[in-house]
Write a protein that binds this DNA or RNA. Structure first.
Length: 268
DNA sequence: ATTCCAACCTGATAGC
DNA sequence: TGCTATCAGGTTGGAA
C-alpha cells in the first residue's frame, strides 16, 4: 500500500498533532510484526517529547529526541492514525497516548510493517536516493544503468537500495508517463528515455502527494482520510481498459514477480 | 556481485 | 450461500 506519497501524506497529517507532545503511555498489543517489536519499546518511548516527524524512504520517522527516531514502516496494510483507536481493536497493534491532545494508533492486518527505535539514520538497512531529493537525476539513472543492464527497468525503480519510495503503483505510472514498458531490460533503455524517466518519477510522486496518496484497500492518512490518486491511475490495475492517451487496451504481465501494466502503443 | 523468487500474513475478490 | 484459488501497496534472505 503505502509508497512514498502515502507515507509522506501520513507524516504531514500526523505531524501537527504530535510535535511537542510528551509520550505518556505506549501499549504494544502485538509484537509480531515483520520483525518482533523490541519488548522494551514502550518503556524506552515513555516520557519522550516528540521534536519532529519526517519521512525517509517509506519510513515515518518520529524524532523523539536524544538523536533517536521512532521509525515506523507501514508494510502493505499499515495505518498510523491520530485519535482514538476503533472500538474493534483487531489488528490494532500499538496504542499511544500523550500528555494532551488525541492519541495515536498503529493498525496493520498483514503485519508486514516494522517499528524500531534507533539512532537517527540507523537500523533501516541500505537505502538509496530520494526521488524527490536533489540527488535524483538523469545522471544518477544513467549511472545505475551501467550496473544493472540486465534488470527490468521497473525492478530497478522499485529497488529501495538504489531508489527509495517507488513501489508498484508509481513505478507503473511513471513508466507509462516516460513511454517505457516495465519489462524492458535497463541496458536497452536509451539516454533520451532515461531523461524522460528522471522527469516522470518525481512528477508522478508529486501529483500523488497533492492528491493525498492512493487508497486501494487499507490506506488512510494520519487523520483517517482516504487518498484520491487512485482515481488518476493511467495503467495500474487497468488491464483491458482503453488507454486514456491513445485508446489501445492496457495490458498486464508479471515483471520481477509483481503485477505490471502498460499501454502497448504509448510504451515501447 | 547481480538477479530471481519464495516467504512472511490477512483479507478481498473471482470463479465454480 | 459457500468453498477454493488467486492476488494485493513491501522487504528480505537464500539460491542460482
Amino acid at each position: 500500500m503505502p509508497e512514498l506519497p502515502e507515507v509522506e501524506t501520513v507524516c504531514r497529517t500526523i505531524r501537527p498533532h504530535l510535535v511537542g507532545r510528551r509520550i505518556e503511555r505506549v501499549e504494544v498489543r502485538e509484537r509480531r510484526l515483520r520483525r518482533p517489536v523490541d519488548p522494551d519499546l514502550a518503556a524506552r518511548l515513555t516520557g519522550r517529547v516528540i521534536a519532529d516527524v519526517r519521512r525517509r524512504a517509506k519510513y515515518v520517522l518520529i524524532d523523539v529526541g536524544e538523536g533517536e527516531d521512532w521509525a515506523v514502516h507501514l508494510g502493505m496494510s499499515g495505518r498510523l492514525c491520530v485519535g482514538d483507536p476503533p472500538s474493534d481493536l483487531s489488528h490494532v497493534h500499538v496504542v499511544v497516548s500523550f500528555d494532551r491532545g488525541p492519541g495515536l494508533y498503529y493498525r496493520d492486518p498483514r503485519r508486514f510493517g516494522l517499528m524500531i527505535l534507533a539512532k537517527e539514520g540507523e537500523g533501516l538497512g541500505e537505502l538509496g536516493v530520494e526521488p524527490l531529493g536533489e540527488h535524483f537525476s538523469a545522471e544518477l539513472l544513467w549511472r545505475l544503468r551501467k550496473r544493472h543492464r540486465r534488470l527490468a527497468v521497473k525492478s530497478l525503480l522499485m529497488d529501495a537500495r538504489r531508489i527509495v519510495g517507488v513501489g508498484n503503483i508509481y513505478a507503473n505510472e511513471a513508466l507509462f508517463e516516460a513511454g517505457i514498458r516495465p519489462g524492458r531490460r535497463y541496458g536497452r533503455v536509451t539516454r533520451a528515455e532515461v531523461e524522460r524517466l528522471a522527469e516522470a518519477v518525481p512528477a508522478v510522486l508529486r501529483r500523488a502527494i497533492e492528491s493525498g496518496g492512493s487508497s486501494l484497500l487499507d490506506y488512510r492518512d494520519g487523520e483517517g482520510r482516504e487518498g484520491g490518486f487512485q482515481g488518476s491511475f493511467r495503467v495500474y490495475d487497468r488491464v483491458g481498459e482503453p488507454c486514456q492517451a491513445c485508446g489501445a487496451l492496457i495490458r498486464g504481465r508479471i515483471v520481477g514477480g509483481r503485477g505490471s501494466y502498460y499501454c502497448p502503443r504509448c510504451q515501447s
